[in-house]
Every structure is written in structure tokens, then in C-alpha cells.
Amino acid sequence: MGRQDLADALDDELGKRLLPPTAVRALGRWLAGSGAQYVTGAGGHAVEYVPAQWSGIEPWPVELPERSRTGTARISRDQVAASTRGAAERSQWSEALVASYVWGQGRTGYGPHRLKEILAEPTVDDALATAGATLRAEGAVAAYHGLHGAVKGLGPAFFTKFLYFLDQRHVLDQSCSLNMTADAPAAPRALILDQRVARVMRAHAARVGADMGLATALDVAAWIWSDSGWTSHRYGVYLGWIHSATGQLAAAGIGWPGSRPDVLELALFDGVWNPAS
């Protein structure tokens, strides 16, 4: 079997072996304890940032505090989604990116410098606008494919945040209508994929591969679930797995919100379950 064949076999097995009982128990305890605030969704998940540190960034989202503020502020997923929705409706695509980028960086000091360089790229507005249209017409994986490598400095860990918050806009659009529109995004919805989540997936894949008897399970898992640069195929595998695992949790009788796969993404990011333990 070649390396890609092994990777495909491991992906197939991951689709069958979603969350082991230990993971379901750990996630259930989290939802009943420190994660109880997310029982209806991850929208309240907030991070701290310092508005004044972003003083050189334009355009600045109108929904965010003025950058004269030197103290800390908090911004939630729901607030970013609302800001993204407003910016997209005005076709202010760079502004939509800023809101998600600030949320993703939080208080990280080098974030403003990196974002300024990204916004200076001549391709950024067209690439983001195209991604928005593709997300709505063809779905998350196609939008990911279009953004991959399209803007210098904007990697998957951050453009999946942009896609996630942009897709929340479409979810809201659908919830306000009794009928799905013809241009509604294809399932599964966009979710964030970053290094921390990828490492959880890598550890889980390595364990599943070992159970399959793959002698190279660690190497294959490290290859397909690297720290960055994931292909659109890998993103599709991730979305399929996390949406299916959300369905598994919803059926487990632990009160898991079955319509909100972002709660599982948040739990994996927070290290609620460690597949290697």
C-alpha cells in the first residue's frame, strides 16, 4: 500500500470510529460543568484583546470599540458573526476579515503587524469576495479551496475563522426563512481548523491507525494532520468527521447540541479530550 492509500484507509476508518467512549464521557462532563454555557451553542465564547494595539488597522469594524481604548475588551463569537454579517452586506470584505482576525489573535502582540501586511496584499478583497460567493453557492470545502494560497500571509488557521463566521451569516439567513434557498451553502457548514484542533485529530488518527494494525500509523497521522497547510480534501475530511461526531454526541443522552458542531470544535481546541491519554 502506498502512503496515500494508507491515508485513505485511515480516513475511512476515522469515519467509522468517531469518538470512543472515553471521549464521550469527557465531553459530557465538560458540558455539564465548565462548558455548560455552550449547551445552546458556542456563540458566547469570548476572547480578550486590547483595541489600542490595533490602531494601525484599516478598515476597522464599526461594531468594535474605538482603538483609543487602552484597556482590555472582550469579543465573542456572536459579536464577530454580527460584525462579519454587517461587513459582508456592505461588501466590505477586508473589514469582515479584520473582525475574525482580531478574535483569533486576541492579545497576541504580533497579530496587528501580520494583519496589516495581509490587508496590504492587492489580492485580498477579490479573494475574500470570491470566497464569500463560493461559500454560499458551493459550500465550505470549495470556498476553502479557493482561499488556499490566494492571499500571502493568510493561512488556513485564520481563513477558516473567516469562513466560519461568514457561514454563521448564512445560517442566520436560513433560520429567518421557512424554506431553504436555492443558493444555500451545502452541508457541512464551515468550521475553524487550526493547529490545536489538528493535533487532537492527529492523536486520534494515530490511535485508530494503531488499532487497525498500521505499522506506520504515527507517520501517516502526522502527514495528514500536520500543523498547517491542510489541503481542501483534508478540510473536507475534518468537516465530515466533526459533523458526524456531533451527531454521535447528540444521540448519547448527554444533552449535546446536535445542530452546533462548533461546540465540539471549541471543546477540541480547549483540550477537553486528549486521545493520547
Rank of each mutant, 00 (worst) to 15 (best):
A222Y: 06
I224A: 09
I224E: 14
I224G: 03
W225C: 09
W225E: 03
G229H: 15
G229R: 12
S232N: 10
S232C: 11
H233I: 10
H233G: 10
R234N: 06
R234F: 09
Y235P: 00
G236F: 10
G240S: 14
G240T: 11
G240Q: 10
S244Q: 15
A245F: 01
A245D: 07
A245S: 06
Q248V: 04
A250Q: 06
A251H: 09
A251T: 07
A251K: 12
A251R: 11
G253Q: 05
G253I: 02
G253L: 09
G253N: 05
G253P: 00
I254K: 03
W256S: 01
P257E: 13
G258I: 07
S259P: 10
R260P: 05
P261Q: 07
V263N: 02
V263L: 12
L264S: 08
L264Q: 07
E265T: 11
E265Q: 12
E265C: 09
E265V: 10
L266T: 09
L266F: 11
L266K: 06
A267S: 15
A267I: 05
A267R: 01
A267W: 01
L268F: 13
F269M: 10
G271P: 14
G271M: 13
V272G: 08
V272D: 03
W273M: 03
N274P: 03
N274Q: 15
